[in-house]
Amino acid sequence: MSTDAQHQEQDAAREWQRWHEGRIVAVAAPYGPLSLTGTHWLSDYPEGLIPAVPGHWREDGDGVVLTAVAQDGVLVDGEPLTGEVRLGADRGPVDASRVARGDRRLMVLRREGLWAVRDFDPGSPARHAFSTIEATAHDPRWTLPGTFRPYGEGRSVRVANADGVERGLGLGGEIAFTVDGVACTLQAAIEPDGSLWAVFADATSGKSSYRFRFLRPEAPDDDGGVSVDFNRALLPPCAFADHFICPFPPPGNTLPAPVPAGERNRIDA
């Protein structure tokens, strides 16, 4: 190996280490995924009262109406709520959600026409039990050249989600690459910034790694070239809290070979 190649590998390993450390910090942050203590679908509470969640919540067409009294201790946009307010789905980070009670953040979620309230609590047991993310050290053999082949039009497939409910998963194309001489493809969604998102499993899933993982390649180049870097395979949010509704891999996204790279499991103290 040339000196330049050695330096490139060392740089890639250092960059991966910074990424890995940043992931641990983000997961353990006060409003990271470990702080999610509940996803409450309003259709399950027709009377509008959600256990352990303050206020009265009801669906109203394309929004949610929250009613609270002073004793509920609810803040909306930083101000105490006494009366009612109409809310839409939260789009920003958790700590920017409109509704709060003490350190807790109550986020409004909409999926396939259904409304839910998510409860994020920095004092969650899961957050305080967390130690680190088990991950395989950077291995240049798992940074693979690939080609993205967009579909003529977007597709949607029904897949099971982590909460046991089947939902639609939008797909914009497939990533083609080779592992040890074997041609593989992963169906992927196209994010608003042009980057890709694939949900995949492999021969390690449910054994030495979590039952499925995410891959987020950068946007393809003009010729469709894309880096398939399994060193940055991610644990899905539901690996940190049972209350996320992550989609399972769509048909065809389970690789026959083991992928001993990237994030593997959550480790608690």
Rank of each mutant, 00 (worst) to 15 (best):
P145S: 07
G32A: 06
F240L: 12
A68V: 03
R216Q: 08
S35Q: 03
R213P: 07
T82I: 00
T254L: 09
D121V: 07
F148K: 12
N161M: 06
R158K: 09
Q187R: 11
P150H: 04
P260I: 06
R167S: 08
R101T: 15
E153W: 03
V259K: 03
A135G: 09
G92Y: 04
A269E: 08
R216E: 09
G168V: 01
P150N: 04
A233N: 13
G194I: 02
L75E: 07
V94S: 02
A137P: 09
D229K: 01
D221M: 11
T37M: 05
R58F: 12
G206S: 11
R118H: 02
L144S: 07
I50Y: 03
Q6G: 13
G154A: 10
G224M: 13
V65L: 09
A129S: 08
L234G: 03
R86E: 15
A135I: 10
V64T: 13
Q71E: 09
L109D: 15
R167D: 07
S209R: 08
A257M: 11
V182T: 09
P122M: 01
G73A: 02
G92C: 01
Q187I: 01
H20F: 15
P251M: 12
D268P: 00
A239P: 10
C184L: 07
V99N: 01
A70G: 12
A126W: 03
T39H: 14
F240N: 10
E191M: 13
R111F: 02
R14H: 14
R213L: 04
G102P: 00
N265L: 05
D223K: 10
A12M: 07
F248T: 11
N231T: 08
W142T: 08
R23F: 06
R216N: 08
I245N: 08
G55H: 06
A162I: 02
L186Q: 08
Y151P: 05
L171G: 02
Y151C: 06
D193I: 15
E174S: 06
P251I: 09
A13W: 02
G181V: 06
Y151T: 03
A135R: 09
S124E: 00
A100L: 02
G73M: 04
A12E: 06
P237V: 02
P220M: 15
R211Y: 04
H20G: 09
A100E: 04
N161I: 03
E174M: 06
T37C: 03
S2T: 15
L109N: 15
L255F: 05
A219D: 02
Y210D: 02
R18C: 06
R105F: 01
G92F: 03
R110P: 07
E9N: 14
A100D: 00
S156K: 02
F177Q: 12
G173Y: 00
N231G: 10
G152S: 12
S227V: 13
A13V: 07
